[in-house]
Amino acid sequence: MTEQELLQMPAADYMNEQQLDFFKHRLQQLHEETAAEVAAAREAVATTDLAAADELDRAAAEEENRQRLRFAERKYYLLRKIQRSLDKIEDGSYGYCEISGDPIGLQRLLLRPTAELSFEEKSRQEQKEKSFRKNR
């Protein structure tokens, strides 16, 4: 099934078996790609030669490792979100907002297959965060 075919389905078919299979496949693919990126980052950190000839080279290598570790940490967090989304497909709650229970929407899920909130709830959450930062 293509994205276009998915979007052309009637609203009444929201999160039917075909749509769930589409997103399951997409999430599994994303999981594999992300796991490979985490493994590559770990390998790069493990093989970095920190016994460089001078202090500048050593400092540059350490900074690169810090950046790789931050990258790997973000990707590892994404792996957990992907797995939560796959679990939701299995329990039947995928595609529905965790707060309101409303459909998240196919367009949003195509852009962010790990989305847990509807556009409206995410906007409300961001507004609260914005006003909280202003009041600090």
Rank of each mutant, 00 (worst) to 15 (best):
I104G: 07
F119S: 11
Y76M: 05
L56M: 14
E43T: 13
K134P: 00
D102T: 09
R80L: 06
E98S: 03
R133G: 01
E90L: 13
Y76I: 01
K122D: 14
A35G: 13
P10Q: 12
E43W: 11
F22L: 04
A61H: 00
Q83N: 10
E90N: 03
D21G: 03
K128H: 08
Q18M: 12
D21H: 03
T114W: 05
Q83M: 06
E3M: 11
R84D: 14
D91Q: 06
D54E: 04
L27R: 04
K81S: 05
E5W: 10
M1C: 06
D21T: 08
C97P: 14
K134T: 10
L7V: 06
E3Y: 03
G92A: 15
Q83E: 12
I104H: 07
R108V: 14
I82Y: 08
R68C: 06
S118G: 15
Y96L: 06
L78I: 03
A11G: 15
H25W: 07
F132N: 04
K128D: 11
Q28H: 04
L50P: 01
A115L: 02
E32S: 12
V38N: 12
D87M: 04
L6T: 09
L117T: 08
E32K: 08
A35R: 13
D91G: 00
M9T: 07
R136E: 13
V38G: 13
L117S: 08
H25E: 10
A53F: 12
L78V: 01
G92E: 15
L79N: 05
A115W: 01
G101I: 06
L117V: 10
V45W: 01
I104P: 09
I89R: 02
A39N: 04
N16V: 08
A39I: 01
R74W: 00
L20C: 14
C97Q: 13
D91K: 09
S123P: 00
E116L: 12
L109C: 05
A52N: 01
E121V: 15
S100Y: 07
R70E: 05
D54I: 00
M1N: 10
E37K: 13
S93V: 10
L86F: 05
E37N: 12
F119P: 00
S93F: 11
L30Q: 13
F119E: 13
L78W: 00
E64W: 02
A36M: 09
K24T: 12
Y14T: 11
T47S: 14
N65Q: 15
R42A: 13
L117A: 07
E43C: 06
A40N: 02
Q8A: 10
E55G: 01
T47I: 04
E5S: 12
E120D: 15
E63I: 02
E43Y: 10
A39G: 03
A12M: 12
L27W: 06
Y76R: 10
E33S: 15
L56C: 03
D57C: 00
A11W: 07
P103M: 11
E90Y: 00
A51N: 07
L109I: 07
R136M: 15
R74A: 11
I82E: 04
F23A: 03
V38D: 13
F22Y: 13
K122S: 08
N16Y: 09
E3P: 03
H25G: 11
F23N: 04
I89A: 07
L110R: 04
Q4H: 14
E129L: 08
R136H: 14
Y77C: 00
D87L: 08
Q29M: 02
S118H: 11
